[in-house]
Nucleic acid binder design. Structure first.
Lengths: 206, 206
DNA sequence: GTCTATACAAAGATAGAC
DNA sequence: GTCTATCTTTGTATAGAC
């Protein structure tokens, strides 16, 4: 394999592999969207953060809405991959699966200015292009489905104990995670998401 | 008392009393901020929605940040009044107090495009003027304090049953409410907030 | 693939008449 | 207190050279 980057200067490293411009744009845009929301950053902000000129962005993403959709798509894929891998492991302990599943969310929770991308975008839902709305909705549906499956299995195997329907508990869990991410930034408390998720799993285990 | 409104046309009624222009601006701006976020609406949108011209807004609120702060302030006062009234009732049943406290949130939850103003604004926290950030933070702190008091008293009186610290449960409850508001719009489900709050109170009552 | 230059609309805001 | 007219800056986006 030949590295595509041909310029001078330091290589762009993230997660240990080199990134081309499109990836750098996606990564930086995700950061901006997580911290400022879709309507809270401009192509100018993005270009400044990356260190290129504004029109260069249009070569990779012909409109801000296209970029927005791509950013959510990448986030969604990344998060879904975790869920898919856990679904693929036969007979994994439900408590462990839940812990592994929540780890990416806890990681975001520990990053001071960050929050779940889709939680943030859900807050500006009707002020967003429709293509982006559909991506956000799909993200939430996917994760509700995963949580419902995991909770149902976990209760059947006596790893979890709760009265309500698995779907209702899944809805509660996802609401809780998303809400904790929003709240923690406003009260400037990095421990909130971890603490809250801990309280939840404590409740679920009876 | 003499009504201040002097023009022709239908009187502006909300909650059964006439509103002057400043109130209409505040009310309409709150709606826009709840549905589109602070960076998702403009003075032009607001003027159009009210039916006046853009510069007229500046007579009442000299900047968008001023208006934003005023909108949160009004929302905060309104919500705090409920909490203060409940604090003032000697020996009120904690479960009833919690139900009454949550009713305004449930009402917002039933309104299709709406969400808690401060939850929405918490999502764009770092893309907001500092004066507004401070209001949002204060809102959350107030409500965490109220919930903590209520939960501690409720447990002492055996109306609630939970293991964790009252503060931790208050943080969980507020995260849950705010998250449910965000989520319900993105999955277009008006029942989510009510269902989720029901599940929570069920859990708290043991 | 990136740049300079530029078009065009919208945003926040002000001046000053009525 | 509201209006018309206007200013300035920013935002999204395109044209065309390198």
């Amino acid at each position: 394999m030949i590295f595509r980057s041909g310029g001078s200067g330091p290589p762009d490293l993230t997660d240990g592999h080199r990134m081309d411009t499109a990836d750098r744009i996606l990564t930086t845009a995700e950061e901006l969207m997580q911290t400022r929301g879709y309507n809270g950053f401009s192509y100018q902000d993005l270009a400044d953060a990356i260190g290129i000129r504004k029109p260069s962005l249009y070569h990779h993403f012909p409109s801000k809405a296209d970029l927005g959709r791509a950013v959510i798509g990448a986030y969604r894929d990344r998060m879904r991959r975790v869920a898919d891998q856990l679904d693929a492991v036969e007979g994994i302990d439900p408590v462990s699966a839940l812990t592994l599943y929540l780890e990416p969310m806890l990681e975001i929770g520990r990053r001071p200015g960050a929050a779940c991308l889709c939680g943030v975008l859900g807050s500006e839902f009707s002020a967003m292009p429709e293509e982006m709305q559909a991506e956000v909705t799909a993200f939430f549906e996917e994760h509700l489905d995963f949580l419902e499956r995991l909770l149902a299995r976990g209760r059947a195997e006596a790893a979890f104990r709760f009265e309500a329907e698995p779907r209702a508990v899944a809805r509660l869990a996802l609401s809780l995670i998303e809400g904790a991410m929003i709240l923690k930034r406003s009260i400037d408390d990095r421990t909130l998401v971890g603490e809250t998720v801990g309280t939840l799993t404590g409740l679920l285990r009876g």
